[in-house]
């Protein structure tokens, strides 16, 4: 007998991937629509591109002597990122556990915690920096506080999602042994989440090194202050030196954290 007569019926939609196709079309349509509504002019991008090359030419002679002046603020940027990420992470860990639905079974409680975390995450880091520069004055304190809050929002979300993906078996086993809540978390949850936690911490640190460069632009300390100064003075050879140095630092951090993550997982 012909096998095709015995095969289960495949719906028309399934056969021609109607769902996928219509989603793609919808997405493309929305992108075009939003470009039109917001007045994005693609033509301008091509007509003005010579301005860009002009800038690149002026940056093509980095002022290498300037490096001796900027390595200190670059180091400060790095320190800001490390301190800010660490503080943010320390606060994020307990909140991540409270927000995880497999740890806190009460949906009101973890819903409330999540709402709070969402609120924190909606605050743009530039806005935070502007506020804290006004509060603490120009300098790295404002930068550290900004990065701490920014990392808190980001890490707490990444962490609680990790916690929710763990194998529930060991939790059940620890409950059956008569462990209390803290003991369950310590014995059954922590060993499962520690490596992804460290991995996400390093990832956030990477992001913060880049972010803190921009924050300095608002007066929150670090290399950004120098970046702003050189741009204001149209001293593009200094700008180039700063960009290259920042790139080097970011690359080193990336390589280091990649290496650490590989070793840990």
């Amino acid at each position: 007998m012909d096998i095709t007569t015995k095969m289960p019926h495949q719906s028309w939609g399934q056969k021609y991937h109607i769902k996928t196709l219509s989603l793609v079309l919808l997405t493309v349509g929305l992108v075009l629509l939003s470009a039109q509504v917001s007045g994005v002019d693609l033509a301008m991008f091509f007509t003005n591109i010579d301005q860009f090359t002009n800038l690149l030419v002026r940056m093509s002679h980095p002022d290498w002597a300037y490096v001796t002046i900027i390595w200190q603020p670059i180091l400060e940027t790095l320190q800001m990122a490390i301190i800010g990420t660490t503080i943010g992470t320390l606060f994020a860990v307990p909140f991540a556990f409270l927000a995880a639905s497999n740890i806190v079974k009460n949906s009101w409680l973890h819903g409330l915690v999540r709402f709070f975390l969402d609120l924190v995450r909606t605050l743009p880091d530039l806005l935070l920096a502007a506020i804290f520069v006004a509060v603490f004055g120009i300098g790295s304190t404002a930068g550290v506080v900004t990065l701490a809050i920014f990392s808190f929002g980001m890490i707490s979300k990444l962490f609680y999602e990790v916690i929710e993906t763990i194998d529930d078996g060991p939790i059940e086993a620890m409950e059956s042994v008569g462990a209390n809540k803290l003991q369950v978390v310590h014995m059954a949850v922590l060993p499962q989440v520690l490596n992804p936690f460290i991995s996400y911490f390093l990832y956030t640190l990477e992001i913060n090194v880049r972010a803190s460069t921009v924050l300095g632009y608002l007066g929150a300390g670090g290399i950004g202050v120098y970046l702003q100064r050189s741009l204001n003075e149209f001293d593009y050879s200094q700008t180039a030196a700063i960009i290259i140095m920042t790139l080097v630092v970011v690359l080193v951090i990336n390589v280091l954290s990649d290496y650490l993550r590989e070793r840990l997982v």
Partner: peptide, 16 residues
């Protein structure tokens, strides 16, 4: 629960 031990199909050890 301390008096009642439990063994599971999937062992439920902390593997790491």
């Amino acid at each position: 629960r301390r008096k009642v031990g439990m063994i599971f199909q999937n062992f439920n050890l902390v593997k790491r």
